[in-house]
Amino acid sequence: MSDPYLQINNLKTHFPVEKGILFRKVTGTVKAVDGVSLSLAKGEVLGLVGESGCGKSTLGRTVLQLIKPTEGTVTLGSRTLTDLDGKELRSARADFQMIFQDPYASLNPRMTVYSMLAEAIQVHRKVPKADLAGAVGALMEKVGLAARFMRKYPHEFSGGQRQRIAIARALAVEPKLIIADEPVSALDVSIQAQILNLLSDLTREMELTMIFISHDLSVVKHISDRIAVMYLGRIVEIGPATEVFEHPQHPYTKALCSAVPMPDPDSERTRKRILLPGDPPSPLNPPSGCTFHPRCPHAEERCQAAWPSFESLKNDAHQAACVRLAELNQ
């Protein structure tokens, strides 16, 4: 891999659980993100997969400094984002943007598309007033919306169109890094494909580096170069997209892949499904050692001892954190 453009180093985001009305007492810690290290090359798309509560959204928000990390660093290009504060951070935000899940909540209902996009364009750049309408129009066309709709309010658009507006707003500041948090899961299937195509076209054209967060493995597989699988605040497996999807190594990834229902009646009726018992545990009191061990069909006593380190089998780019990795993947 070429020089990493985005480097995330041992990132931890812990939330104190407080009780009491006047004098708050910390009664516990939710370890939403618990020691994640990642690096992305420029222009790379990383898919981040995991179930609800695994910390994938928190990780995205921590990388973008919307939540302050408890520990660890995030470096984008030559700048360490975790060291920035106040004004510096605000001006640095031009480089990294977020696309949100719910296009109904991510647009201010009382602003027209024009004022929303014009505001975004002007945050970090000086644009003469006369040129603004042209810039907004160009931005709208880039995401596949007709410029003549710019005086409309968000509620006059459909879900897919709203998501396009949200994407346009994120692109307005000309970012280098985009974190897309479940950008298609609130949309209908036929609209999902449109947005996925748009995102992959844009990343290619603008050389965007992107982290694509989703719970849907098949969507992630389609758009990403690499996939990272998260479970309870940690990454358990990472590797090239097709390889992770087709030959998963970690027991959790295996179960996840087998649980995804395929729209193919024959294979759906014949294939063997790994059914995991129970629900994902709460990050408030995570199990000891490998946090997956209570649900893992292959767990042994040593799984409870310590968090396993990453290992590779054939391909160095494909890593998984499981003590029994070699024996389970013979």
Binding site: G160, V189, S190, A193, Q194, N197, S218, K221, H222, M262
Partner: peptide, 24 residues
């Protein structure tokens, strides 16, 4: 047909996804 074509799971990776134009 279009619905099934636009599901990412059924399509080869990297290929442009089939999309149904327009809106419901």
């Amino acid at each position: 047909r279009a619905l099934q074509n636009s599901i990412p799971a059924l399509q080869a990776k990297g290929k442009e996804l089939y999309t149904i134009p327009g809106m419901p």
